[in-house]
């Protein structure tokens, strides 16, 4: 077992993990934060996307032990009390979800896109950069609209 210490949604967290413990397992099973989803478990669908040291990564393909000392943000870390993050608001307003399973990863990926491309990111860039996030309900159209609206309000 390895001892790890990291900042999870701004709070210091300590834990004991095996080498093979995936970051998503640590987040969901040890910390009880089940907003981060496991869709495919094969590094493709993006439902498990979280931010590690400011970069969006697939937490099903990162070992928790390798995140010792990291700053991690999950979907639970976005809202301030009852006030949702502008990207969460945009997904709600623009119907950027149906079943909602992919949504946490979509939102984490979208915020990462805005960080890199700015508030006025265009549709083509959003579509290209969401290629690592799969949605089986919406056909992506409203997701793209939501990301553009959320970006403008960030």
């Amino acid at each position: 077992m390895h001892s790890i210490s990291l900042a999870l949604n701004g709070k210091p967290v300590h834990g004991q993990v095996e080498g093979r413990t995936l970051l998503v397992e640590f987040i969901r099973e040890s910390r009880g934060l089940t907003g981060t989803h496991v869709g495919c478990d094969t590094s493709q669908c993006g439902a498990c996307v979280v931010s590690v040291n400011g970069k969006a990564v697939k937490s099903c393909t990162v070992f928790a032990v390798a995140c010792d000392g990291a700053e991690i943000t999950t979907i639970e870390g976005l809202a301030k009390g009852v006030d949702l993050h502008p990207m969460q608001v945009a997904f709600k307003e623009h119907h950027g979800l149906q079943c909602g399973f992919c949504t946490p990863g979509m939102i984490m990926a979208s915020i990462d896109i805005v960080k890199r491309h700015g508030k006025s990111v265009d549709e083509e860039t959003i579509r290209r950069e969401l290629s690592g996030n799969i949605c089986r309900c919406t056909g992506y159209h409203n997701i793209v609209k939501a990301v553009q609206a959320g970006a403008a309000n960030m």
Binding site: G46, V49, K58, A109, I113, G132
Partner: peptide, 9 residues
Amino acid sequence: IGGVHVRHK
């Protein structure tokens, strides 16, 4: 190569 999350790693 892959998607952006993959390229981050």
